[in-house]
Design a protein around this nucleic acid. Structure first.
Lengths: 124, 124
DNA sequence: TGAATATATGAGCAATCGTTCATATGATTA
DNA sequence: TAATCATATGAACGATTGCTCATATATTCA
């Protein structure tokens, strides 16, 4: 599961490619990076994160705010919780969810800048 | 394709959920955010981005550096190019790819911090 | 205790994704 | 021009994902 096809074939610039490997994180770290971006790459989860970014909310309020079913939201909250991006707190019958990671909002704002720049650069 | 199931059911705290909607980006923007995170949520693409982060490289050098087939890398470079995260420059037979987005490296470093913090918080 | 409410979860299904394989395209060189 | 090299691409296939539906669990309240 480490390396896929061992397919070295040819290298045009061996010296360059070797030096690149020094800055490359370990396979394990790359896998964690990918996993983290995957969790914030779904529109439902992004909406959930925005919804609870200001204050903690219970599941049906989140579902109502983003017009998704309770079940769908609950499933995604579970994923977000496993990834330690949200935390929850049970009060009576309700479970209140809130952000557990101060980095997510920063990632969103940086990425929105990226998106906006892409738009202005794409004008014809 | 805009709203999925229109399933309002009940709202426990209507005042809270309404105020949340003010900070929520448009559906279109959310979709673009999701698309952007999706493109950097694959290990092959992350490795490619790290590989070309220092200097531009041609396809087979990238493939060699990350031990993936030329075809797989070429397919993913196409995706990265469509998303405007990399740019390319043809010189003779080779096509040299490089980063087109200064934000990606920042996202990686912030995310690595998130991952590291997660690890230290998880100790028992 | 029983009904109602809030949340969680398993199964199933359609859609998306990333790879391989085969081959096409485009550029250089003998 | 023919052979070779670098890259791109379409089809196919397996794996993953996110939803719905039905139902389980847990808490409150009458």
């Amino acid at each position: 599961m480490e390396e896929k096809t061992d397919n070295p074939k040819k290298v045009l610039h061996k010296d360059k490619t070797i030096s690149v490997l020094n800055t490359m994180p370990s396979n394990n770290t790359i896998e964690e990076l990918a996993q983290f971006f995957k969790i914030i790459s779904d529109t439902t989860r992004i909406k959930i994160l925005y919804t609870i970014s200001k204050r903690k909310l219970c599941v049906i309020d989140i579902a109502s705010a983003i017009s998704m079913s309770q079940s769908a939201v609950s499933h995604q909250l579970k994923n977000l919780k496993i990834s330690r991006i949200v935390k929850c707190e049970k009060i009576g019958k309700q479970v209140y969810y809130s952000l557990n990671d101060k980095h997510v909002e920063k990632l969103f704002s940086i990425s929105l800048i990226h998106i906006e720049e892409g738009k202005s650069g794409r004008r014809k």
